[in-house]
Design a protein around this nucleic acid. Structure first.
Lengths: 340, 340
DNA sequence: AAGAAATACGCAAACGTTTTCGAAATTATA
DNA sequence: TATAATTTCGAAAACGTTTGCGTATTTCTT
């Protein structure tokens, strides 16, 4: 017998109508202080807890927000989650969390599960495979507030949070060049997603600025499997005209680069410089320590949550505006990009 | 207008009773194949999605499982989460995820939120601060299936999943001693929680076995703040009779040890050997690479979920048996414990 | 061919809330 | 003192499902 006492039973115990008890518990002005006290203490005594589903059914809202991320074992997304939770928890919201594992099919399934209104809103970062966006459009058309971060979907007119992908990659690449790189490579998970495009653009802009001609084969699309990525990178780094620098647009490819370099006995940073987007706490403990572009993950999470909470709790809020909000990243220079 | 069409409206559209439509959608034997087809296609056409709250209210179950973990930015817990999700998703269950940030007060708040039946079951790992367990008992008394993993609460009679904490620490400490450590230290987050006790016991057993007398001051309780931990460890490592080996019962303290060693210019492994419980994917890339005891995180998550799903989906299941299930860890030897 | 069994569906209650409306009882107003 | 205004509460509907029970229609018995 999981369920406890109901409002009706509580009311019966008090010789009051359910409506009165409901109002008392919700601190309505229509109820005298005396009865409120009586109700509260009896509720406490009988261990009454309002049934959330009855309430959700009646009020047509669930005090629940769904979060969809591409992967959990990733410091950036974990930090964003913490940021979101810190705000939503304050306002009594619950978090349904789903991981797509970078799989579009899984993403579609998850999104379809949310079509029934189980969550009041959705904040998500699309998978690296997400080119078709019909499932997202369905969500949007249903009127569910959606909010994107990092891997955004620009076709859906809503609010999106990103970091200054272009600018920070531009500066990171400048740093790479300044440290002596002549033939930097760019690593990505997919050509389709938003951040890749922006970061690649920033990368190319820096090369052009420095008068370096880019070999398109040095812009490498990698995959999900670690082993395969190490192979791909080893192959790249084994070329006679191999890259002497790497800008990785995601954390895991920087690590694959380290492994590949280790395998080929290429020394970092003297023979290969590496820089990466990453929110690892221990970048400084790697061998050698990794120069990183740190994204404001926690802040992004908090800002997402704040906007959503405002939209959900204040009456008559307009739809989430169709705008892209940028929060800058920070470049932390460590050993992996040191000039000799 | 978030909510779509209702069952009633769908029924009206079909000139059928809501009960018939409900049964058709649930594939009841009482409905003819022909009407089932008609209903299904109309539901598809009108984009009907059953309201989960109405269903939950009626059926008194939510197809939701709550997971409470001490922190998200931790490979072990992230992997457990993935394990849980892989099973629950198959069965159409949703995951409410909460992080206590190792804070007992937060844990209590979260647990109290779950008293109302929002989730059909709970799987959790208690915070390192959890000594008082009255909130957990309240949950249990309510009849909600609870399941513990890793940081278990032995006072609650239910199923718990752990790794072989004693045995694996015993072996890890043996390894440390075998590599030449004379004065190993043990690092922990709290003396109260289950895993710490077991691991400490294993540690001490190995010392006794080797005839090493243990200095109690070498069993260090650390805290949550990284900086403070580095201070504590630096102090420990600055003693004239400083430890020459470290067994860290949690990942983050191994990293703090690395930082402290770096600060004191102590060389690992020649001057200090380090071994730690950790599920970091990149332990091999640290400087030096870190010898780790890897817990079967994903499996633990899967097993938790399997048991829970069985309990929740099969009718007339008995309560979760009061037993502790052990899944062994694996010792991966790397550079940080190499004898010179 | 008449009764029994099986098939296919509808009516209405129930789950536990919130809220609209109405109506007593009390207090203030003239 | 009679009436108006205020305070405080109750009755009942509604949210969208599922399900026990009743019933009309068809099919199977003998």
């Amino acid at each position: 017998m999981v369920s406890g006492i109901s409002l009706k039973e509580l009311a019966a115990e008090l010789n009051l109508a359910p409506s009165t008890v409901s109002r008392a518990l919700n601190d309505s002005y229509e109820i005298s202080e005396q009865t409120k006290k009586r109700v509260l203490s009896m509720a406490e005594k009988l261990n009454y807890h309002p049934n959330p589903f009855a309430r959700s059914l009646r009020e047509n809202k669930s005090k629940t927000i769904a979060v969809i991320i591409p992967e959990r074992i990733n410091n950036f997304f974990a930090q964003v989650m913490d940021g979101i939770e810190s705000i939503t928890q304050e306002h009594g919201y619950h978090l349904l969390v789903y991981s797509t594992h970078e799989d579009l099919e899984k993403e579609k399934k998850i999104v379809n599960l949310l079509l029934n209104g189980r969550a009041d809103a959705i904040v998500m970062s699309v998978s690296s495979q997400t080119s078709d966006i019909s499932h997202l459009r369905k969500l949007y058309d249903r009127g569910l507030p959606i909010l994107f971060f990092d891997r955004i979907c620009s076709e859906i007119p809503t609010t999106k949070f990103i970091t200054n992908d272009f600018q920070s990659t531009l500066e990171a690449t400048r740093h790479l060049i300044q440290q002596g790189c002549k033939r930097p490579a760019f690593l990505m998970l997919s050509e389709d997603i938003s951040i890749t495009k922006e970061r690649h653009r920033g990368f190319l802009a820096a090369l052009k600025e420095a008068g370096i001609e880019h070999n398109p084969e040095f812009s490498k699309v990698c995959c999900q499997r670690e082993e395969r990525n190490i192979e791909i990178l080893a192959e790249l780094l084994n070329r006679p005209d191999r890259p002497d620098g790497i800008l990785s647009s995601v954390e895991k490819l920087a690590l694959a680069s380290y492994h590949a370099a280790k395998k080929l006995k290429l020394r970092i940073p003297s023979e290969l410089k590496v820089i990466s987007f990453s929110n690892m706490g221990i970048a400084g403990l790697l061998n050698p320590s990794l120069t990183t572009i740190i994204q404001p993950a926690c802040t992004i999470g908090e800002e997402c949550a704040k906007i959503l909470i405002k939209k959900l709790t204040k009456p008559n809020q307009p739809d989430l505006p169709n705008e892209v909000i940028t929060i800058p990243s920070k470049l932390i220079i460590r050993e992996s990009t040191l000039a000799e």
